[in-house]
Design a binder for these strands. Structure first.
Length: 553
RNA sequence: GGGCCCGUAGCUCAGCCAGGUAGAGCGGCGGGCUUUUAACCCGUAGGUCCCGGGUUCGAAUCCCGGCGGGCCCGCCA
């Protein structure tokens, strides 16, 4: 037996989980509740996965392993008003301005394929949550909540409106709410706005009377059709779902900000224990032209979980989130996906003990982030095969899609990337990356990564341009390659070295390769010759080479 | 007016919470291998740790005060 006296390095999320475990246990509830919140104001970018979905999910799973029962919600703020920001209005071919101030849920889908604005933009995010997490997250909307628990809460608010007012006014030095203020915002039945109505009278338990500052309409509204102002609504969500933990973006974290006033209301008016919080920094987007901007929903800046999954595993994004402490900036771009894979592979090797980290802290950060990067279950028992993303990007282009699982894998074995007895998970991952990397090259890859073998008939014409001293050498290359007993990268390279060493001079070697690439791809350069020929296979390689070898005889 | 993150090699950053002779990767330079998958191997140069005080035997690290950059809040959500 030995006592652990050394202070071991810990991952930030484990330290957080420790604190949360204590706080949750003190609440002595049979099931504790985690929540996240999103306003569906436009592009549902991946940045929103960070604080509202992935971080609480990982914490939940750690606490569940320690025996706690945790219910995780994600609340969509669908009653919020549509701000008519430029980027939002532009979504509509014309006339988008007329929806200014409408509740998001009532704004039509500009593309016309979903029943409203929320449904449309949520479709790039919602269905993919289960790919990025274990899927045990219940999505609720404030629109639904106002018909049930939030409606009860609204009644409570109206009853204690004077207390609510006095608390909120502590945070409103310049524009205090006046006596008699009724904290409810109905939807104007005439112009549709939710941001211009003012309650003038409580009619009965279920109805209020309002005036619309926009159109002047005076009407009656049910208290389930409208919303509470933000600072009250957030408390209402805590109250309705019984929230015990909820992270929040840095914008809510300021002293005297919404978080502070909500805690005040929770404790002093509604007599509930406010949830534990966690401020987090937003996710930045490195745009294709090299700028760095905060991702933004209503400004339509960034890319969606759907976009991510087209070109990369959810593991990689989880890894990036976990590797970065919550209050630090995290920048991502789709162009850098291949680098993210090599970072991830490094962490993977450290996790399986195949590579040493430079410090114990680094080891813990990377290995633990890797371990928690699996959306479902744990990492496999042994190290999966790692094939560089860019290598698979090339392979995916030179081998027809329907042959990836046969030819493709055979070539990876031939090139030594795969053993004869590959792991099941490694194989699965490679086949998945082939699909993703192929899409990546098309959508985000640099042009020099794009390889397409040109048709043999075209190649034949180009081959005729090879001048005779060079065709001599191409003939030799052809013969040497034809004689190879194994179509292996190493042997192919050997043949190239033998032939090119006879060319006498760098400029001739350059010319030689230029011709080769022009015949193969129509361009003057391409991926390294030996691996490329190894990838495209013996028969096809020899067909192309014979075209050059036979020309200008 | 308030808050957060940051300031360490040319670049990107680690190290700071628990003080003990300044680190990594990329880039540079020299060499090797190789036409070119953002590749690999060997060697090498390069730093007033933003500034000023304080605590200490000892400070990049802790405390106080500045400066610079980025972001957020100021009663919207």
């Amino acid at each position: 037996m030995c006592l652990r006296v050394l202070i071991v390095a810990r991952h930030w999320i484990d330290e957080l989980a420790d604190k949360l475990y204590d706080a949750m246990t003190r609440r002595s509830k049979s099931i504790v509740v985690f929540n996240g919140g999103l306003s569906v104001s436009g592009l549902q970018h991946v940045g929103r996965l960070r604080g509202e979905v992935i971080i609480p999910e990982v914490l939940r799973r750690i606490l569940e392993k320690r025996g706690l029962k945790v219910k995780q919600y994600l609340t969509l703020y669908t009653q919020d008003s549509w701000k008519a920001k430029e980027a939002q209005v532009e979504r509509f071919k014309e006339g988008g301005e007329k929806y200014a101030g409408w509740p998001l849920i009532r704004v039509p889908d500009p593309a016309g394929c979903h029943s409203n604005w929320v449904e449309h933009y949520w479709s790039d995010f919602g269905p993919f949550i289960k790919e990025f997490t274990d899927g045990k997250i219940e999505v609720v909307t404030t629109t639904e909540l106002y018909k049930s628990r939030l409606k009860e809460f609204t009644k409570l608010v109206l009853e204690s409106r004077e207390k609510v007012r006095s608390v909120l006014n502590k945070y409103r030095g310049r524009k205090p709410y006046e006596e008699g203020w009724i904290p409810f915002e109905p939807i104007c039945e005439k112009c549709g706005r939710i941001d211009t109505t003012e309650c003038t009278r409580i009619v009965d338990e279920e109805h209020v009377e309002y005036t619309c500052r926009n159109c002047g309409h005076v009407g009656l509204s049910l208290i389930e059709s409208g919303k509470l102002m933000w600072r009250i609504e957030w408390v209402g969500v805590w109250w309705s779902l019984g929230v015990d933990f909820e992270p929040f973006g840095k914008d809510h974290a300021m002293p005297g900000g919404s978080r502070d006033s909500c805690v005040d209301l929770a404790v002093n008016v509604f007599n509930i224990t406010p949830p534990e919080g966690l401020p987090y920094e937003w996710v930045e987007w490195r745009t294709p032209d090299g700028r760095v901007v905060d991702m933004g929903s209503s400004d339509f800046l960034g890319f969606t979980p759907r976009d991510w999954l087209e070109v990369a595993h959810p593991h990689i994004f989880r890894f990036l989130v976990l590797r970065t402490p919550p209050m630090k900036k995290l920048s991502v771009s789709l162009h850098e996906v291949p680098q993210y894979y090599s970072l991830y592979y490094k962490a993977e090797r450290i996790y399986y003990g195949l590579e040493k980290a430079s410090s114990e802290e680094e080891r813990e950060l990377l290995a633990r982030s890797y371990e928690l990067s699996y959306p479902h279950g744990d990492p496999p028992l042994s190290q999966p095969e790692q094939v560089p993303y860019l290598h698979l990007a090339i392979l995916a282009q030179v081998v027809p899609r329907e042959k990836w699982s046969s030819e493709g894998l055979a070539r990876l074995k031939a090139s030594g990337h795969l053993s004869d007895q590959p792991t099941e998970y490694g194989l699965k991952r490679i086949l998945e990356i082939l699909v993703k990397a192929h899409t990546w090259v098309e959508k985000y890859g640099p042009s020099e990564m794009r390889v397409e073998l040109i048709p043999l008939t075209v190649a034949e014409k180009i081959a005729r341009e090879v001048t005779s001293p060079l065709s001599e050498h191409f003939r030799e290359l052809y013969e040497r390659l034809r004689a190879l007993s194994n179509w292996r990268e190493e042997d192919i390279k050997e043949a190239f070295i033998v032939v090119t060493s006879k060319l006498g001079g760098e400029s001739n070697i350059k010319l030689f390769y230029t011709h080769l690439y022009r015949v193969l791809t129509g361009k003057e350069s391409g991926p390294r010759a030996a691996p490329l020929l190894a990838l495209i296979g013996r028969d096809l390689s020899l067909k192309y080479l014979s075209l050059i070898a036979k020309s200008n005889v």
